[in-house]
């Protein structure tokens, strides 16, 4: 009888010690590679500069812009309200805390979209949801929002609607902020666009 107990004791000890060897990686939580690949091949992560502009103008509280360029570039120019997290500092203490907050859309922004997309893949690997990439990046932002080009006269009306929106956004982002009287104007103009559902386009 005692021999039985000894056997059980030894077996239980072995099993318990065995758990020590189960997990060897100290990596933070990651999603399975297959799942990552599934997410990567879907283009749903891209948002256009127009969508971002619209959210900024409307003061959408669920928008968090994360600028992944270097700190120097960020100091020189950045979108209003964006946070600077250069790629090399992505894993630093506290930076991951910006991501995965329920109800918050994180939009990655870089000069063009490559670095932002890389950041997206990396955060996705860590299982973060609700992140997006601004397609075209700041280069496209300049071409579409800051200096939009006028469509031809015979272009479809949706292009003209888009142009009108961009023109309004241009005023908003390039100086209307200081002139308080213009604020209401912009607000009204943008609200109106909502019905026509600004078409994506540009870069």
């Amino acid at each position: 009888m005692n021999r039985n107990y000894i056997l059980l004791t030894v077996l239980m000890l072995v099993l318990a010690v065995g758990t020590l060897f189960l997990t060897t990686d100290d990596e933070p939580k990651q999603i399975a590679p297959e799942e990552l690949l599934q997410q990567i091949i879907q283009p749903t992560r891209y948002v256009t500069t127009d969508q971002v502009a619209k959210m900024i103008i409307q003061g959408d509280p669920s928008l968090l812009m994360v600028d992944v360029r270097s700190a120097d570039e960020y100091d020189e120019y950045a979108l209003p309200g964006s946070v600077n997290i250069p790629l090399e500092e992505l894993l630093n203490e506290g930076n991951m805390g910006y991501f995965g907050v329920p109800g918050v859309k994180v939009v990655f922004i870089s000069n063009d979209d490559i670095r932002a997309d890389q950041t997206w893949v990396l955060t996705k690997r860590l299982g973060v949801d609700g992140t997006y990439v601004m397609k075209g990046g700041l280069n496209c932002w300049m071409q579409t929002i800051i200096e939009p080009s006028q469509p031809d006269a015979d272009a479809p009306s949706v292009d003209h609607a888009l142009y009108a929106f961009r023109k309004g956004a241009q005023i908003y982002f390039t100086g209307a902020e200081s002139a308080t009287t213009d604020d209401g104007n912009v607000e009204v103009q943008v609200r109106r666009r909502e019905k026509t559902n600004v078409a994506a386009g540009g870069c």
Binding site: L13, L15, V17, T19, T23
Partner: peptide, 19 residues
């Protein structure tokens, strides 16, 4: 501390308690 540490600690305590 990782979970297995606690598993081993509790197992040792439990087995010692049995005897």
């Amino acid at each position: 501390l990782p979970a297995p540490y606690f598993a081993v600690a509790f197992t040792v305590v439990a087995l010692a308690a049995f005897w």
